[in-house]
Amino acid sequence: MAKLNSSDIAIKVTAVNKSYIVGKKKTPALENINLTIQAGTLFGLIGPDGSGKTSLFRILTSLLLPDSGEIWVDGLNVITEYKNLRKRIGYMPGKFSLYTDLTIKENLDFFASLFGTTFEENYDLIKDLYVQIEPFKDRRAGQLSGGMKQKLALCCALIHRPTILFLDEPTTGVDAVSRKEFWEILQSLKKEGITILVSTPYMDEATLCDQVALIQEGKILDVDTPAQMVNKFTNPIYAVKGANMLLLLRELEKDPSVERIYPFGEHHHLVMKEKDVLPVLPLGVTINKIKPNIEDLFIHLMQHHE
């Protein structure tokens, strides 16, 4: 189909608010969300559980109505043109939502028929994924391992060749190897021209996206490319390592020149208040200046918002 005007924008979200009634209190789930996502990007929505990722996904996929705001997805108004929208998008919810009593093949055939297509028609799109689960095509989905369930769910979400793919926390609870494989699959799907919006609580996955939005407590902290984003972290940051890491942490926490110190893998990340000032370090402690990563920035932004 010929591209319509302004079709380079896949998703446009303006001033979206959503709140739920919990008990008798109104709890905001999303506050003034603004997002523009270019077509063909792999966009990551990064934030911890309960930050509003799922609510935003459900609004974008026409499953929930926002309290206010305007949303355009693939040139369609999510609220009024939901019927057309539902033909074009693919959605993989965070919870495994296929039929556990149907086999792999039966699930695929069923979801294909939902969209008025067949498994064979779009086979080339899911081929790479499908061959990995094909040996088990007659096994019921409920008896598959986590990794295979996830691949099947992705196949089902792709079966009608959607223009935009929404993946809600596809890698949560998945081991590091399967996660890596999953991201490789997403890269190849991107090459097919599908816009992908993926949410994740794993900060390290941010670098695998073209663009990311950090979300926390229903608010978007920042939107940018991962590379640009970390440049916004202006405080000097160092990795320190000593023989007794716990003691080192407790010591440096007390230092007034230290903005923040927290464990980060084998090191502690040490954020200083000013440039060229270093804390007094115990003997034998190594210190190296490092480039901040998304997780450093997220911690920084979280504390600034509070």
Partner: peptide, 8 residues
């Protein structure tokens, strides 16, 4: 700690 924010 699955899904918990980095500070928590």
């Amino acid at each position: 700690t699955g899904g918990v924010d980095p500070i928590t």
